[in-house]
Design a protein around this nucleic acid. Sequence first.
DNA 1: TTTGTTAGTAGACCTTCCTTACAAATCACA
DNA 2: TGTGATTTGTAAGGAAGGTCTACTAACAAA
Lengths: 391, 391
Amino acid sequence: MTATTHRQGWGKALRPTEKVLPEHARAHHRSMVLQHLFHAGPRSRADLARATGLTRVTVSDLVGALVTEGLVTELGARQEGKVGKPASLVALDTSAFQIVAVDLADDERMHGAVLDLAGAVVERRSATHDGRTGQAAVDALLAFCQELAAAATRPLLGVGVGSPGVIDAHGTVVEAPNRGWFDVPLAATLSDALGVPVHVANDANTAVLGEFTFGGASGSLLVLTVGEGVGAGIVLDGALVQGARHAAGELGHVTAVDERDDVEHAPLGPAQPCACGRRGCLETVLAVPALRRRIAGLDPAAADAALASVGHRLGIVLAPVISALNLSEVVFSGPAELLDGPLRDAALAAVRERTMPVISSDLELRMTSLGEDGALSGAAVLVLSGQLGVT
Amino acid sequence: MTATTHRQGWGKALRPTEKVLPEHARAHHRSMVLQHLFHAGPRSRADLARATGLTRVTVSDLVGALVTEGLVTELGARQEGKVGKPASLVALDTSAFQIVAVDLADDERMHGAVLDLAGAVVERRSATHDGRTGQAAVDALLAFCQELAAAATRPLLGVGVGSPGVIDAHGTVVEAPNRGWFDVPLAATLSDALGVPVHVANDANTAVLGEFTFGGASGSLLVLTVGEGVGAGIVLDGALVQGARHAAGELGHVTAVDERDDVEHAPLGPAQPCACGRRGCLETVLAVPALRRRIAGLDPAAADAALASVGHRLGIVLAPVISALNLSEVVFSGPAELLDGPLRDAALAAVRERTMPVISSDLELRMTSLGEDGALSGAAVLVLSGQLGVT
DNA sequence: TTTGTTAGTAGACCTTCCTTACAAATCACA
DNA sequence: TGTGATTTGTAAGGAAGGTCTACTAACAAA
């Protein structure tokens, strides 16, 4: 007498909005196969069938199509001595296509690379901004992409760009003051000019996607990028958090030093003015220039204490976020000599002090495992995700 | 030369994990149709086709099935004078099924109701806990559900329960100290005994689902429930945030009063011990008993100032969360006479002070529009969502 | 009365997946 | 060394669901 039963689970994007055609299902299944090959390495068709829940017949069909496309190659029979017909392994051909990735986080230079499908850098380039803004900056970026595309030795899967600023899900830059971009349909423009798919996202978001895909992260994590500014990208249950105005992750301009710190002998001193026009933003104490200024000329012990003070304040800001989202993984991206020591220790201690054990006991707060290339890897993930459905 | 193009969008739960069969697509489309009828009211088949993107043929077929099931009824021809054949309207029959909803947030009594599919309360009951815990508490809840089920005048779509504690996506209570429940498969147990689908979720999560569905909310919001304790539920991009350990929304035990407040004339006084064993948790100043204690015996102006102090501190805790998630809507659920005044004003002011304008300028911080029944409505949404895919 | 527009339905067709059945290749054991 | 068990991969047939095209019904405006 009851109506059809759906499965329980409110974490999986309900409020249905788009129809599902057979071809979408097909693409989804194709992505599942690629996903498993990407993360688990070479497998047999039967393995993939077990992993995906599809039948061997269907997997065979999908693999056949992928082999035809060149994305997957046959490796030959598996050498293990098990009963039954030996499996023939297939693998993702990570050299079948290449990806162009560009990182615009730096105010001085554009960093770019050609990567294979495994995220390994094949070729690296960079170019100066020369202070260009607006359309000139778009043109320079386009030329840089063309240079990289020309350097590719394989067909291009697409181009991924990580840029500072507020960027919507379609790759339109809503605002990026550094480049003088406002409502610039960057992805569409580049895609038209280059003739390949282009994906653009905020640099903190590319960082978190890179960490999520290549950093061995679990389903939910926050990546805090510390450079000229401070930003954050958040992945929850495998989905990037966009925010109401595509501005999620804006942690650099949350107040971290307030009126209660305007006292003598305050560990961080009084609140400092911020570029955003307010005072005491997290960025005024945590951005790399601020950190370097703070420890300049101090002896090691005093420098450690100063970094710990900043870490403690960072922990105070992070605690409500970690608690509200029940995050189990927080990753720092930035100069390790500043972040990966007293600062990180103090931040973790502050978070533990200020949240319940159930929240903080299994919290991991670590440095990124991707080093300098985090942003580039993340931009590549934009393409992998957008074109192949692989994350 | 490039591979298949997927659509851009990393906010929509990628990392594919489950296969999609035609029947799933069918269920999805059925949900889309119900969803539109639920929120937009009576529509013609052609309207639904335009809204869903499906063809008129397919919608006709789906509507036919829904009419057969009794969920949808034919209303007859539309009376508007437009060219062409007049449309025949169909509508969700909100009285076709009923839902049993139970709210366990109160430590004294279980509150329950029978609701129709529009979320309107048809019958209301309550029962005391009598301090029962463990299996006895489960049995009492089961008996209460049976009483409510017997009071229903229509076939039951299902049962929804909102309970304090940590509850996973399958309705298993991981821990609920108040009831002495640890790893209790509540949904499965009740479903077996009652013979109808049962959905169980944390009470703060039911609150946010209720607000999301019936409160006219946009895609992302946070509901802060203030009662004996303080909790929060978060919906981002239409999906409930679960957290790594199903403990998302735990804001009550984030430190809100710290060592910097251990000074003379601190507006809130020094940090107070909390039931969780630590000191200065948000709950120690914001929970209803704490608020009542704080303003007891004060003249109105002093009481307002005291509430504003608490609100200010709440704003400090909320600012990083609002900023990190770029929330545009924060909703308070609890006694309006305490929350909806100086406290709320001060909280909003503090958030605005401590975040960028781009984040806070279009932030709405309001009281729930569902009043006392928020939790019950939310429990009903569990069932609507789980059984019909309607949110 | 004719023309144009919109709503809803019927039938043919396409895609995709599943089920069933089968050949091939290997191991285990008599 | 043969025989059965087991596993892999593929082929053929069928079911489900959606689209496309074509049709009828019903109304407004000219």
